Amino acid sequence: MALERYFYRYGKATFSLFLINLAVYTVESILSGNPIRISPNVLLLFGQWNYAVLHYGWWWQLFTAMFVHVSILHIAFNMYFLIVMGSQLEHVIGPKRLTMVYLVSGLFGNILTLLFLPPNTVSAGASGALFGIAGTLIVMMGVIGGNMQAALINAFFLFIINSILPGVNAYAHMGGLLVGIAIGYYYGKRIRRRMALAYGYGYY
C-alpha cells in the first residue's frame, strides 16, 4: 500500500524509473563492494565504454548506461531531479510518453557520446534522459504559454549551468536536451491546439 501511494503521487512511469535506477545501483554497489563509489570494472561492464561498444559489439551499453551511476551523490542528485521533473511531465503527457522521453533522450545522448568522445571514454548516468525530460517540460510550457524564446533561453542556461563542471558529459546532456526540445515543441503544439478547440479561440 505504501508503494501504491508513491506511484500515485509521482506517477507510475516516474516512480518505476526511479526504482529501476535504485535497483541497478544496488547491484553495482554489491559487485563493487562499495555503496559510496562504484568500481571502474563495474562501470566498464554496465556503463558505456565506447571502445567496447565499437569493437566488442556491446551496443546494449547505450541503453544500460542511462540507468547506471558512478557514486551515491551522482544517483542522489539525478533521482531528485527525476522525481521533481518527471512527475510534473508525466501528469501532463502520461506514463507511456514519459518513458519514451526518458529512453529516447538517454539513447540519443549516449549516441552523441559514442560519436564525439574518445574510444577510451567510460560514461554513465541518467543525465541525458533527465535533460530530455527537462527540455520537453520547458519547451512544452513555452509553446503553450506562447513564449518560445524564453523557453529556449531557459533550456540553454540549464545546459550551460549543468555542463561546465569537469568530468561532466556535455554531449549526453546536449543530446538529451535536443530530443526534449523537439518532443516538447510537438506536444506543446498538440496541447495548445486542443485548448483552442475546447475554448473556441483562434489558433495560429
Score class of each variant (00 low, 15 high):
Leu115Lys: 03
Val68Ile: 14
Thr121Asn: 08
Tyr102Glu: 02
Leu117Lys: 10
Ile93Trp: 03
Ser87Val: 11
Leu45Trp: 08
Gly132Thr: 04
Gly86Asn: 06
Tyr80Phe: 15
Gly128Tyr: 00
Thr121Ala: 13
His91Trp: 14
Ser123Lys: 05
Ile83Lys: 09
Leu114Pro: 01
Ser105Gly: 12
Glu90Ile: 05
Leu98Thr: 13
Pro119Ala: 13
Ala134Trp: 09
Ser127His: 06
Thr99His: 09
Trp60Lys: 08
His74Lys: 08
Tyr102Trp: 12
Val101Pro: 06
Val122Phe: 04
Leu82Phe: 04
Asn78Asp: 13
Met66Gly: 04
Leu54Ala: 12
Phe46Tyr: 09
Trp60Ser: 07
Phe46Glu: 00
Trp60Ile: 11
Gly125Lys: 01
Thr99Arg: 10
His55Thr: 15
Trp58Phe: 14
Ser87Leu: 10
Leu82Asp: 03
Gln48Pro: 03
Leu73Arg: 12
Glu90Asn: 08
Phe63Trp: 13
Leu103Thr: 12
Thr64Gly: 06
His69Tyr: 06
Phe108Leu: 07
Phe108Tyr: 07
Ser87Thr: 12
Gly94Leu: 07
Leu98Glu: 10
Leu98Tyr: 08
Lys96Leu: 15
Phe81Glu: 09
Ala65Glu: 03
Gly94Phe: 07
Gly128Val: 02
Trp59Leu: 14
Leu117Phe: 11
Ser127Trp: 11
Ile83Pro: 06
Gly94Arg: 08
Asn78Thr: 06
Met79Arg: 07
Asn110Ala: 08
Ile111Cys: 00
Ala134Asp: 03
Phe63Met: 11
Gly94Ala: 06
Leu103Asn: 06
Val70Arg: 14
Tyr102Arg: 09
Leu45Pro: 02
Tyr80Pro: 09
Gln61Asp: 07
Tyr56Asp: 15
Trp59Met: 11
Met66Val: 09
Gln48Glu: 06
Tyr51Asn: 11
Leu73Phe: 15
Leu73Val: 14
Lys96Thr: 13
Pro118Gln: 09
Phe108Arg: 00
Leu89Phe: 07
Val70Asp: 11
Thr64Gln: 05
Val68Asn: 01
Thr113Lys: 02
Phe46Val: 05
